[in-house]
Amino acid sequence: MSNVETKPVEQICRDEPGPEALPDAVTGVQVLTARDVPLGGPRAMTVHRTIPQRARSLIGAWCFADHYGPDDVSVTGGMVVPPHPHTGLQTVSWLFSGEIEHRDSLGTHELVRPGELNLMSSGAGICHSEVSTASTTVLHGVQLWLALPATARFGGRDFDHYVPTPVTLDGGSARVFLGGLPLVSDPNATSPVPAFSPILGAEVSIDAGALLRLDVDRGFEHGVLVDSGKVAVFDTDLATAEMGYVGTGNRTLELRNTGDRPARVMLLGGEPFGEEILMWWNFVGRSHDEIAAFRDAWQAGADQFGSVENYHGDPARLPAPALPAVRIKPRRNPPATS
């Protein structure tokens, strides 16, 4: 998905975890409230963005999280995002309802459907389009980005499609699309999709009134993004589209459904990224000058990004916004509270 803000700000992000908690300690939960961003189009579908933001930029390699819907496409027009570029990242498309047609400069033509992972790796440059299909009445899902580490960010373009099998848990279930859930014997608790950094991505459902205790890697930090229902992470209540952040050092996560209906969250985790990145528009880079070069290459139609075939919308490709007139100073993540 594109960041279609007309005046995106540069964001230089460092992931700096707080002090490790004691082996059985609970790290404080930081609540990340989403801001609303119009996705574009004449009626503008709205997405709810939790990261990056001033309070926290990264969770592991996860550097961007948009939640949207349930969205009545007859009212908003749905998703229509013309071909646009990416560098230095992977896009993760995940739906709860609806259908999106994906085309990219690898020649991939794939439908994004509920419960199916579509993972696109930009390498040094890729472009793609995303359009909700005519059969879609309600569009509902998340769009996530993973920052590529220095060892992989100039690699080749790639695309993976994976349909995870649900894993039954005590108090709920999970669809693990990246990484794995420790100490869960079911082979479906680990995704076969290769990753470039230690990572976890899963859709987790919590039964009505249930307390779900998940064993997790104590070297990971985690974000719990609420899609539906009444959810508390440990003892901290979260509203729909809010994310609860938990720092490193915990062996378990407690997810409690405080309502009388099933709840659903996205669980995002990973080792602290350890690299400073700069994000602007749809580019992840390492410096202002590098981002400016990416923008110039896209505007010039450079081969770096390739082209999307058989996209017939207007405009035929999304132009890049103007760069900001100033350079932004690095912004550090605050430590997790203990």
Rank of each mutant, 00 (worst) to 15 (best):
D217G: 09
R251T: 02
A239V: 01
G274D: 05
M266K: 03
E242K: 03
R286V: 12
S228I: 05
V204S: 02
L212N: 04
G219A: 12
R261P: 06
V226K: 04
G244T: 06
L278C: 15
A210C: 11
V216M: 11
H288N: 09
V216G: 10
E221Y: 04
V231G: 01
V246E: 09
H222E: 07
D217N: 15
N250A: 12
A241D: 11
D217M: 11
G249N: 09
R256S: 09
T236K: 15
F220L: 04
A263E: 07
G274I: 02
E221Q: 13
M279W: 01
I277R: 02
V204C: 01
T240Q: 14
A263C: 13
L225M: 10
A263W: 07
L225R: 01
V233D: 00
E254C: 11
E221I: 03
R264F: 02
G274W: 03
V224Q: 04
G274F: 05
A239N: 12
G247N: 04
M279A: 14
E221M: 08
S205I: 00
V231I: 12
W280N: 07
K230L: 10
E276S: 12
F220G: 00
G269T: 06
E276I: 11
V265C: 08
I277C: 05
L268E: 06
I206L: 14
F234L: 14
E276R: 11
R218E: 06
T252W: 13
A210T: 10
F220I: 02
D237V: 12
F273A: 02
L268P: 01
R286F: 08
V226I: 10
G247H: 03
R218Q: 06
V204N: 00
Y245L: 14
